[in-house]
Design a protein around this nucleic acid. Structure first.
Length: 749
DNA sequence: GACTCCGATCTTTTT
DNA sequence: GATCGGAGTC
């Protein structure tokens, strides 16, 4: 077994100890994927385990594909028989096979987040509730987190403490919304992302014969990125492995960055409790980065309280100090980063694909893209708005979805009046309400439309229904490509786009053509067993933006969020937008846990770099279409300054260990953090502005000033004659105000 | 019911 | 800066 020779001791142990439960704690860059792939290869080659009985769960489709390819390189085509995929895709597949057990059709639709939110929006509206209070986002997140904790709408409704929470949040109708949302999804024969996991739990809980079947089938279960699993996912794997107990989980608590989605580091502790005989392997040697980068990363993560004990080290070179770029604006930041990439590439004969620019939020890509374009640097943006989220693509897919599942309410709403058929929102609501009131399926109502709605509406709906019947026949008889082409033409969608000769219209038309090409590719794939439209839709529903990696020219600078970068590595890494409120995000400052998650995110960003790490921040930045003053991120001060250098002039690098440089740098960052912003804000006092009595003003209170806008009281100087307050304003920085003169309004929170 | 214009809101991350 | 929903008009 020659591949075993390429492993270090702990890695080899983690590969060959295949029996029984294993917990593999794998630090950043410690060869985690290698261990996982070799462990599976070892099972197949050495232990003669049938690939069909190995289940390997990953977090992204991309990771699954990559791992399968790597295993295939070791064991050959047998690897194709592995059960390997994301939680969502694997269990969607199982749910389809067992759909009837739960009262679903095997062609059930998978709602994406947009579908879910639109549905919630219409329910809120139908209930006559205020959509300012019941914001679709908020309602959706509340339902989602309930499902991820395996709380059904029934137990939600019956749980007094949950109800009390909702009452306290002034959202007493939340339980009703959850119930209606669940019912509507079920009626539409649809599951959202969370349902795929939730319903798998229901399936395994209520149908023990089914559970037993899969327990027997999967002799070995492996879970990658275990720190990112939520309770729902953990319980599924726990149940599956309960009999054979061959379960290996691989993860790094320091890289847990999905708690906002219900991921729970607690799972690692629970695992050790539930599988008390588990062997623990720690992979602590980093093969990716320089000593300097590892040291810097360690100095940051050490500030987190919640973590498992481990010591990440590397035998690699000392390497270079971390560079910090300070820019006056986001545009200048882009220019400086682009220039740095340009210079580095020329001086060090590197390639564009060696570089990555990482940011906290997708919207930051724009400034970077502009700067790169100006320098003619080729780049690609990963993530962001994906191809499958474009309107025209969603439209055509909605048609295809509707041909497969004629009870899919969201698809129906999307397409019934596209192109215009004289069936507006009022009529659509009428149809949906009729279905609900009479207990009919949506499709039943449509088939009876001519009698239910005599007149123009009935006629229009009748024509629509006949058209859909034609599509259903196509979808049933022809392959996905022929059916999709037929639908694109027959619906009038293609013609409408074709007739739109604007630039956007042209590109929309091309996008639809591209979708059809993708379907053709799907049909032409010799390995695909099922070439039906239904099969294509199933694949597409769980695809994400990161999965559409177009080959073309691979030598490009990569731009992406830090979240998307997890698991990847690049020689040169730029982390841009190192500013307070942006990174750490203002939404995450609420609690210590949230701040620790941001810090882990920063840790992930640092540990992507192999050779050189550059951090940058800007003093001003456009946000929400407004110029905002920014303060350097606290994270910059959290790196031990011994590992950083001052950026006097690009290209000059100071030697490692030059503490004088470090001191100057720290000072400069601190100065920027305390700087008083001076530019004008657009704040305008409301007409009814009335100053409060400030005798009770205390530090920490939120205040409003008719000229300086909102701010927070920092400290109060209680001299009897002239009481003064130091206030930090959001837009004007710090000001000291005489309370006898200043008009301040105190805001309760 | 369709179309146009304006203002509110948004951005944290993703299966 | 972009998108979405509401109001107003035809």
């Amino acid at each position: 077994m020659d591949y075993l020779d390429s492993l270090n001791e702990p890695q080899r142990e983690a590969v060959i100890n295949t029996e029984g439960p294993s917990l593999i704690i794998a630090g950043a860059g410690s060869g985690k994927t290698r261990v996982l792939t070799y462990r599976i290869a070892y099972l197949i080659q050495h232990k003669q385990v049938d690939p069909f009985s190995i289940l390997s769960l990953t977090f992204t489709n991309k990771a699954a594909k990559e791992m399968r390819d790597r295993i295939e390189r070791v064991v050959g085509t047998e690897a194709r028989n592995l059960w390997m995929g994301t939680f969502h895709s694997v269990f969607a597949r199982i749910l389809r096979a067992e759909a009837d057990r739960l009262g679903y059709n095997r062609n059930f639709t998978i709602y994406d987040t947009d579908d879910s939110k639109t549905l919630i929006k219409s329910i809120v509206k139908e209930q006559g509730l205020d959509d300012k209070v019941y914001k679709p986002n908020v309602v959706f997140n509340r339902i989602s987190s309930a499902k991820n904790r395996l709380i059904s709408w029934r137990s939600y409704q019956d749980n007094p403490s949950i109800r009390a929470e909702d009452e306290a949040a002034a959202k007493p109708h939340m339980a009703k919304l959850y119930r209606m949302y669940a019912e509507r999804c079920f009626k539409s024969d649809a599951m959202d992302f969370d349902d795929l996991l939730f319903n798998t739990n229901v399936l395994f809980r209520e149908h023990l014969d089914v559970l037993n079947k899969y327990q027997q089938r999967f002799r070995y279960v492996l879970v990658d990125e275990f720190q990112d699993t939520n309770v729902s996912q953990y319980l599924i794997t726990k149940k599956l492995a309960a009999v054979r107990r061959n379960i290996a989980v691989v993860g790094d608590d320091a890289q847990s960055i999905y708690a906002f989605r219900g991921a729970d580091i607690q799972n690692i502790l629970n695992f050790q409790k539930d599988f008390s005989e588990a062997q623990v392997f720690k992979l602590e040697q980093n093969y990716r980065s320089t000593k300097n980068i590892i040291n810097a990363a360690n100095s940051v993560i050490a500030r987190n309280k919640a973590q498992l004990k481990k010591h990440i080290w590397t035998a690699n070179d000392q390497g270079e100090l971390i560079e910090v770029i300070k820019a006056t604006s986001d545009q200048e930041e882009g220019r400086l980063v682009a220039y740095s990439i340009f210079e580095t590439k020329n001086n060090e004969h590197s390639r564009y694909r060696d570089f990555v620019i990482l940011y906290r939020t997708n919207s930051q890509s724009r400034a970077m893209e502009e700067a790169l374009r100006k320098r003619n640097i080729k780049y690609k943006v990963v993530g962001g708005l994906s191809f499958y989220q474009r309107r025209e693509i969603k439209d055509l897919i909605a048609y295809m979805r509707y041909a497969i599942n004629a009870n899919d309410e969201q698809a129906f709403r999307r397409i019934v009046n596209l192109p215009k058929r004289g069936i507006g929102p009022t009529s659509v609501d009428k149809v949906i309400v009729t279905a609900y009131e009479r207990g009919y399926d949506l499709w039943e109502v449509l088939q009876k439309a001519e009698e239910l709605f005599p007149g123009r509406l009935g006629n229009a709906l009748g024509q629509f229904t006949d058209m859909i019947k034609g599509f259903q026949l196509e979808a049933a008889r022809k392959d996905a490509f022929e059916a999709a082409s037929h639908i694109a033409k027959g619906s009038g969608l293609l013609r409408e786009l074709y007739e739109d000769k604007t630039i956007e219209g042209l590109s929309r038309y091309e996008n639809v053509q591209e979708l059809l090409n993708a379907i053709k590719e799907f049909v032409d794939d010799p390995e695909a067993e099922d070439k039906s439209l239904s099969a294509f839709l199933q694949e597409v529903a769980l695809l994400t933006s990161s999965d559409q990696d177009k080959d073309d020219d691979p030598d490009k600078v990569t731009l992406m969020t830090i979240h998307m970068a997890k698991g990847l590595e690049f020689p040169y890494v730029y982390v841009v937008g190192m500013e307070e409120d942006l990174f750490p995000s203002q939404m995450m400052l609420a609690s210590r846990q949230d701040l620790e998650e941001e810090r882990r995110l920063f840790y992930v960003a640092i540990t992507r770099s192999m050779k050189r790490l550059t951090l940058s921040y800007a003093l001003t930045r456009y946000r929400f279409g407004r110029l905002k003053n920014c303060e350097p991120s606290r994270f910059l001060e959290e790196i031990d300054p011994a590992y950083m250098m001052v950026n006097k002039e690009l290209g000059t690098r100071s030697p490692v260990g030059d503490t004088n440089h470090a001191r100057v740098l720290l000072k400069s960052i601190q100065r920027d953090r305390q700087r008083i912003p001076t530019n004008r804000s657009t704040y305008k006092a409301p007409a009814n502005f009335a100053p409060s009595d400030t005798s009770q003003l205390a530090p920490g209170m939120k205040v409003e000033h008719p000229k300086s806008g909102f701010g927070r009281a920092e400290n109060i100087d209680n001299q009897v004659a002239n009481r003064k307050a130091k206030v930090i304003f959001d837009d004007f920085g710090e000001k000291t105000l005489l309370l006898s003169f200043a008009k301040l309004k105190i805001h309760d929170e």
